[in-house]
Design a protein around this nucleic acid. Structure first.
Length: 337
DNA sequence: ACCTAATCCTGCATGC
DNA sequence: TGCATGCAGGATTAGG
């Protein structure tokens, strides 16, 4: 599932592939992907728009267009795949939850998750639109004036797109309330500590909430909590200063390493030659149920915390019974600006 | 303020 | 072999 590092990897790829392209036409095959405006207007407004930059905020991608911001969230399994013009269609480039650059037997270069075989089989049964095949997982197609195209694909159809006014992304509801970028200067120890002590919530759901800090998903939360030796159900306002420092450091460290690695792929990656991928971040707890903890060798267990599958070392990450530290109470002003 | 459950979806694993 | 069932989850929303 794409979290901050995977989205950042996709952003970089898109930056290379579609900045400077102008949209000729947009096809929407699954209308629910488009959150706003209504699909006919969405399509019409995008015609003639040039992509000037690709930004990212948390797990949101932001396509900076001539007159609009196109906001895209990949949710669970969303991916972008770029197809050059038909005449030189020797390469199809997939941008997903991924990490490797591979050339498959048809000479298509992919940044891929290893689903080449399966998708190929599907494709042969599918029609083409412009320079590219359409699979049953293709939901939105951006056709560019030079004959190339960008397809949005999403097996579970959970991803969403919204078109807002130029430079309007920061006001978009999903983005407006996001906490600081974990890899930016704004993610200070002070603000992190204040936010933690203000909440009685279990630490894991608080970190998944995106308001205290943005970009963490289920995988990296488990990894960061393991690294910081904190139990996922530890109430946020019971963490001591050492733990807060460890946790902040762990979040930054885990995400920075994952970004450097180009993201993490959960499924076993096999390229066209059957070789396992090597550039993934190795995971210490996520998906490691039953395997020895890399620190103490105690078997990793899987439980459920806030309806999420949760992996932890029962020896390194013990729930500490403590009284809450006195958090500052905040007065909320009603209404008004 | 906090918690749980439901929602959206499909692929995959399991059970009979 | 095939059908039914359950599970996975990011973000949002409803209800307690």
């Amino acid at each position: 599932m794409p979290e901050l590092p995977e989205v950042e990897t996709v952003r970089k790829g898109l930056e290379q592939l579609v900045v400077g392209k102008t949209i000729a036409k947009v096809e929407v095959l699954w209308p629910k992907i488009i959150e706003m405006p209504e699909v006919p207007l969405f399509r019409k407004l995008l015609e003639g728009q040039t992509i000037h930059a690709i930004d990212r905020r948390g797990k949101f991608l932001i396509f900076k267009m001539t007159d609009y911001d196109l906001i895209s969230h990949l949710r669970m399994e969303g991916k972008y795949e770029f197809f050059p013009p038909y005449e030189s269609n020797k390469t199809a480039i997939e941008l997903g939850d991924t990490s490797l650059l591979v050339t498959d037997p048809d000479n298509r270069v992919r940044l891929s998750e290893g689903l080449a075989e399966k998708e190929n089989q599907e494709r042969t049964r599918q029609e083409r639109v412009g320079s590219a095949p359409v699979t049953k997982h293709t939901h939105v197609i951006f056709l560019f004036t030079d004959g190339s195209q960008l397809q949005y694909r999403d097996v579970r159809k959970f991803g969403r797109m919204a078109l807002v006014v130029k430079d309007g992304a920061p006001q978009y509801k999903g983005i407006r309330q996001l906490g600081p970028e974990p890899l930016a200067e704004t993610f200070t120890l002070e603000s992190f500590k204040t936010g933690l002590l203000r909440s009685k919530k279990a630490i894991k759901p608080l970190l998944l909430d995106q308001r205290l800090v943005t970009g963490l998903g289920n995988i990296y939360v488990d990894e960061a909590l393991w690294q910081a030796k904190i139990h996922p159900e530890q109430p946020a306002d019971t963490l001591n200063d050492k733990e807060i420092i460890r946790l902040r450091t762990a979040i930054i460290d885990v995400l920075a390493r994952a970004v450097a690695a180009g993201g993490t792929t959960i499924r076993t990656y096999l390229n066209a030659l059957g070789e396992a991928g090597k550039f993934q971040l190795s995971l210490n707890v996520y998906g490691q149920t039953g395997k020895p903890c890399p620190r103490c060798k105690t078997p990793i267990i899987k439980t459920k915390v806030a309806q999420r599958g949760t992996h932890l070392c029962p020896n390194c990450q013990k729930l500490q019974v403590r009284k809450p530290r006195a958090g500052k109470k905040i007065k909320h002003s009603k209404g008004g600006s």
